[in-house]
Amino acid sequence: MLKYVLQRVLFMFIALFLVSLFTFFLINSVPGGPFENPAIRPEVRLAMERRFHLDQPLIVQFGHFLRSIVTFDFGISLIVQPSRDITDILTERFPITIVLNLLSNFIIVPLGFFLGSLAALKRNRIPDHAVSALVVVFISVPSFVLASLMQYFLAFRLGLFPMIFSTSQNWDWDRLHSMILPILALSFGGIAFITRFLRGELIETLNSDYMLLAKTKGLRTHQAVFRHALRNSLIPIMGMLVGIFVTILSGSVVVEEIFAIPGMGRIMINALLSHDYPLIMATTVMYTFIALVARLLIDLSYSIVDPRIVIGGGRSAARS
């Protein structure tokens, strides 16, 4: 087990290294650079490029980047928020995105499970059809359309919510209140995804022999569903949670734009558009790292949910 975790951590860093390598060379192969602006005088530009090692060969630049990761000093932003410490930008922006993400996961998981179970249990009856219709809408209508609709009807016409993200600097009610609509907008896709998937899984496990045995043993329907069917349906869904988590983390760009949320999304887009290399690299590394850690945690927890999966492939669980 420990050996396996260590192995996985090692692979994680290799993956992280490869992702940074590819990103680094990709963004550098895009024509243009951070200081290619006619308003910047050539000698200033040269000085700037020398200051940020942009005049050196790529491989040397990559070396500088690697050193910055190891020392956790990502340097300063070049264009997006000039001269500002990147660590500073991240610590300011990232919590907002993460809270948005976590809160929408708190909506996605229970609601997805509820709707998915409802559809599976009432299969081919009215609740199932209603849920299916909802799923189709949630999956096919982009989140920004739903976000705009909610903004118009719920915030503008009915005034139930603020139009845009609160400018309050603290985590107070104003801020949370203004986060409700973006959180909802971010959740629809995930809800639909989980609902659809769980419905399929659950229908399969509901028709399994062990459900019949559970019933003939004398369990009530709801006991059999909760104790036997749901747990077995959970196994394939766990893997998908990472995907949803990461998608929301990075996919909130448009929604953040609509509600004027100072989160990571806007920073990332601006960094990419303006060739703000240090900022791009810092955010890429961070997102990759989060995705890899999430993946590792889910993989490790598989063995808790499903005893047939033995972490590290030890011999202890061989058929006896």
């Binding site: 022999d209 019949l212 045995l213 043993k217 009530r220 329907t221 077995n232 047939r308």
Partner: peptide, 28 residues
């Protein structure tokens, strides 16, 4: 009713199935 039935099942009548490989919950 199903509720009444679940009180009879298990305690007064029980069943053994054809395929023992799939009749047990794999994760319990």
């Amino acid at each position: 009713k199903q509720k009444q039935f679940s009180e009879i099942r298990g305690s007064r009548m029980a069943m053994v199935f054809q395929d023992p490989l799939s009749a047990l919950n794999p994760v319990m």
